[in-house]
Design a protein around this nucleic acid. Structure first.
Length: 270
DNA sequence: CAAATCCCCTGCAGGC
DNA sequence: TGCCTGCAGGGGATTT
């Protein structure tokens, strides 16, 4: 499932596929939950435009076009942005963008349709973007400490709240909490400044390692060239409930926190 | 404001 | 073999 590292890996890979190229033809699937902007409007607004920049905000991608408008993309659970050199469009391909230079096209596939695409007129933003908290790569101990003071909820819930921290999802939350030796069920407001410092460092560490490894390829994530990321091989606890803890050998426990499965070592994480 | 719940969607694993 | 159920989960909307 795409989180900050997977979105960043995707951004870096598709930036050269988008920037400076003129969008010639946009092909869309039928209207669905996926399209926040109706397909016909999307085609009309995009065709003929040139992409100038491609930025990441948390788990969102934002492409700036040459008329001042912007294209907002979210990969949801199973979204993939692919070069046409990596595969043909199929029943799960909702968007195909071809370019005036006749080079490789860009495909947006998403099996579960939790992904989103929206065209933003010049000068207009989107509440989804406006609500985002600090980018997770820039997290600090102070930020976590301040944000957690009024929170009775589990620290893991805090990490998953995109209004607090933008980019962390279920995998990297579990991995960061393991690295910081903090139990995911700990009440956020009970964290000390020292623990917040450990947690902030752990978050940055696992996210950067995830980017370097090319993301975590579980479920559907693949890189835009079709290759798998490698970070799943470095997962210490995520998806490993019942297996031995890599640090102490005890058994990793699986619990549900805020409707999400979580894995942690009861001995190592307090 | 925080927190809990439901829902969108599809593929797959497990049970019988 | 095949049907049915439950589960995975980002995040918005709604309710408490």
């Amino acid at each position: 499932m795409p989180e900050l590292p997977e979105v960043e890996v995707t951004r870096r890979a598709i930036a050269p596929l988008l920037i400076g190229r003129k969008l010639e033809k946009v092909t869309t699937a039928s209207a669905s939950y996926f399209f926040l902007t109706p397909p016909a409007t999307l085609r009309r607004r995009l065709e003929g435009r040139t992409v100038e920049r491609l930025e990441r905000h948390g788990k969102y991608l934002l492409a700036s076009l040459d008329d001042g408008s912007r294209l907002l993309l979210h990969l949801g659970m199973t979204g993939q942005l692919l070069s046409s050199t990596a595969g043909r469009p199929d029943a799960h391909t909702h968007l195909v963008i071809s370019f005036a230079d006749r080079g490789p096209s860009l495909l947006f596939r998403d099996v579960r349709k939790f992904g989103k695409v929206r065209w933003l007129p010049p000068g207009k933003s989107d509440p989804r973007l406006d609500k985002l908290g600090l980018d997770a790569l820039a997290v600090t101990a102070e930020h976590l400490f301040d944000a957690s003071r009024r929170r009775r909820a589990a620290v893991k819930t805090l990490l998953l709240d995109q209004k607090v921290l933008a980019g962390v999802g279920n995998i990297y939350a579990d991995e960061a909490l393991f690295l910081a030796a903090l139990k995911p069920t700990r009440r956020a407001r009970t964290l000390t400044r020292a623990e917040c410092a450990r947690l902030a460092a752990a978050i940055v560490s696992v996210l950067e390692a995830g980017i370097i490894a090319g993301g975590s390829s579980i479920d559907d994530f693949v890189r835009p060239d079709g290759s798998d990321g490698g970070y799943q091989e470095q997962h210490q606890v995520y998806g490993r409930g019942g297996e031995p803890c890599p640090r102490c050998g005890g058994t990793i426990r699986r619990v549900v926190i805020g409707q999400r499965s979580s894995a942690y070592c009861p001995a190592c994480q307090r």
